[in-house]
Write a protein that binds this DNA or RNA. Structure first.
Lengths: 112, 112
DNA sequence: TGTGCTATATAGTACTGCTATATAGTAGAA
DNA sequence: TTCTACTATATAGCAGTACTATATAGCACA
């Protein structure tokens, strides 16, 4: 289980990256993140849905309800052009901080 | 300026890493982080001191007051053995999340 | 009928970065 | 002397957010 703060720092970039590959609904995003991380990114619904609402309020994603053939209706999200821009900035920031840490921790960790 | 969440995720590992190289006082740690990051890790006193108190409360660091020859007295911090253990765990977690992101973002970013 | 999975939502809590403010020592300028 | 600036630590209050707990609702299967 990852620390709360690392989860916090990686949540927005991961959601935006998933949506940059095509629309998806909340529950689906949660499960994709779980798969992508081999079970490490364990988000709960109480983490994901408020995040999606915040991202939408910031204009980084948009949403639309669609019925499901088997089960409750789903709210599908798409990334906006603003969201794409923010994602690119997030990537740069992450790489940036990673470089600082690798510099601190030495080259032997850079391979891992 | 880095995002609040990236700052949050990197603060503890960076402080513990600096202290793992020898004792230091708060103001000094702030400035070292600024140097190490080429001016990117801009912490304020209101960020650093509460953090140091939390780290001490958690038993990751210990402190001792020492007078200064030129200026107000300083509180010197040392990393504890528990702090060393937590630092190693933090490193592994970071590398771990970084690997997930690099996997998502593709190999072309791994070089940057 | 009941259990379990899918799917979304939110009130409340706890944690934490950051602003603003306070205190105090030293040094140099006006 | 008085003022400004830098060093050094501290904390009250604010704002943002992960997470728990709880609620609602549809479908499948026993």
């Amino acid at each position: 289980m990852l620390s709360k703060q690392l989860v916090a720092a990686s949540l927005q970039p991961i959601v935006l990256t998933i949506l940059s590959r095509g629309e998806a609904y909340g529950y689906e995003i949660m499960q994709r993140a779980l798969d992508l991380s081999n079970g490490q990114l364990v988000w709960t619904a109480g983490t994901l849905y408020p995040l999606m609402h915040r991202l939408e309020a910031k204009g980084l994603i948009s949403s639309a309800w669609h019925p499901s053939e088997s089960g409750p209706r789903r709210k599908y999200y798409r990334i906006t052009s603003k969201g794409q821009t923010v994602l690119e900035a997030d990537k740069k920031e992450w790489i940036n901080v990673h470089a600082i840490l690798m510099n601190l921790w030495g080259p032997e960790l850079a391979i891992a």
